[in-house]
């Protein structure tokens, strides 16, 4: 078996260790005997429908985020939207997450259009929300990460959050929600990176990809002792620092 991971804007939107998510997806495939190929897709490079099994999109600085937003206004964004509607698994962090919402409103200047996959929008804020985060998710249990954003994301009536923050700011520092879920897409503010310390999320994405490409397939269990040690030490650290 083989899965192809599409790393969107790998060279321009890859901040705070986001690349660790791609390493986690690839390694957790390989450890199960599934071949994993990683293809980086940058600004101006076309997205071929049906070629990719998992999408990953990280955070970036303002300038790079603007370039990505413009790059997705057209057929490339349309293809990505169709893939997600058809159940392709996707993980987007911070800047990538924001652009999957309807728009990003900067401090000044024009509204930055998003893909509108999540019924959500983001407004630039003046306060930077930084620190360890612990999230309770009905679907995935306890999640831990590190947030670092000034954008405040608000969920519309049709949006489902990834979970509720127990420690940390979350989407906007007000309503205790964190992230957003739609079909097999996950958007959130969790750097850290999120997948190595929360392997259940990585396995959710891999399983969804295998199901879509190969039909019903049970995922082999892995020895996640070290992952659990790192996860609980990060949770303890979050409790001590916030």
């Amino acid at each position: 078996m083989e899965l192809t991971i599409c790393w969107l804007y790998a060279r321009t939107m890859n901040i705070y260790g986001d690349r660790g998510n791609v390493l986690a997806l690839a390694q957790r495939c390989r450890w199960r005997g599934i071949e994993a190929r990683v293809i980086e897709l940058g600004v101006g490079e076309p997205l071929e429908p049906g070629r990719y099994d998992i999408f990953f999109w990280g955070g970036g600085q303002d300038r790079e985020q603007v370039a990505a937003a413009h790059d997705l206004q057209g057929p490339k964004g349309e293809t990505l939207r169709c893939e997600i509607e058809e159940g392709a698994p996707l993980l987007a962090i911070c800047g990538g997450y924001q652009l999957l919402g309807r728009f990003y409103r900067p401090q000044r200047g024009e509204l930055l259009p998003g893909l509108g996959i999540f019924d959500a929008w983001t407004e630039a804020g003046s306060r930077r929300m930084i620190g360890n985060v612990v999230v309770e998710s009905e679907e995935f249990g306890e999640l831990v990460g590190f947030e670092n954003h000034s954008g405040r994301t608000f969920l519309g009536p049709r949006a489902r959050p990834l979970g509720r923050v127990r420690i940390g700011w979350g989407n906007n520092g007000e309503d205790k929600t964190e992230g957003c879920r739609y079909r097999n897409a996950i958007g959130c503010y969790l750097h850290g990176p999120v997948l190595p310390k929360n392997p259940q999320l990585a396995d959710f994405l891999i399983e969804a990809a295998l199901r879509r490409r190969y039909g019903e397939i049970a995922l082999l269990p892995l020895d996640d002792t070290l992952e659990r040690v790192a996860q609980s030490s990060a949770v303890r650290r979050a409790q001590a620092t916030r």
């Binding site: 705070y16 260790g17 986001d18 690349r19 660790g20 390493l23 930084i130 620190g131 360890n132 590190f146 670092n148 750097h191 850290g192 990176p193 190595p196 620092t241």
Partner: peptide, 9 residues
């Protein structure tokens, strides 16, 4: 630096 995600870079 309070964020250790740099280890992954």
């Amino acid at each position: 630096g309070r964020d250790v995600s740099w280890l992954w870079d």
